[in-house]
């Protein structure tokens, strides 16, 4: 597994993202709070450029909410711009399907560099 420098440590503010190409692979680096996450820029549904989508929260309802809709994961949900499939940036988990998850690339902060491992 090789490491690639994709950003400077002071480059992304919380809520920012950066699209990078590593060879033929498009990866998006996200900063959520103080943590970094790197996801592939391809939606597993119909291969849309997922990381160009809105970063927001999600409406969810379950037994804990008494089945009333509530707002969850604010600033941590990525919505595919093509058909609206939602993913947790922090885990890659698709909200619509328990068995669908985006690949997460390891992110390493090394001094002034932010690197991803592929």
């Amino acid at each position: 597994m090789a490491e690639y420098v994709v950003a400077r440590a002071d480059e992304l503010k919380p809520g920012d993202r950066k699209l990078v190409a590593v060879g033929r692979i498009q990866v998006v680096l996200f900063r959520v709070g103080d943590a970094y996450h790197a996801l592939p820029n391809i939606c597993p549904h119909q291969f849309g450029p997922i990381c160009e989508g809105k970063i927001t929260g999600a409406i969810m309802a379950n037994a804990d909410t008494g089945w009333e809709p509530g707002w969850f994961h604010d600033g941590e949900v990525l919505v595919c711009p093509w058909h609206g499939l939602e993913f947790r940036i922090t885990t890659g988990q698709c909200l619509a399907y328990p068995n669908v998850r985006l690949r997460q690339y390891p992110v390493i902060v090394d001094g002034d560099d932010v690197k991803i491992a592929l």
Binding site: I59, A61, N62, W67, G84, L95, A96, Y97
Partner: peptide, 15 residues
Amino acid sequence: EYNENRHQWPHFDDR
């Protein structure tokens, strides 16, 4: 339809 509109039926967590 669920692909685009899960947020309208948030009580479902799968297809």
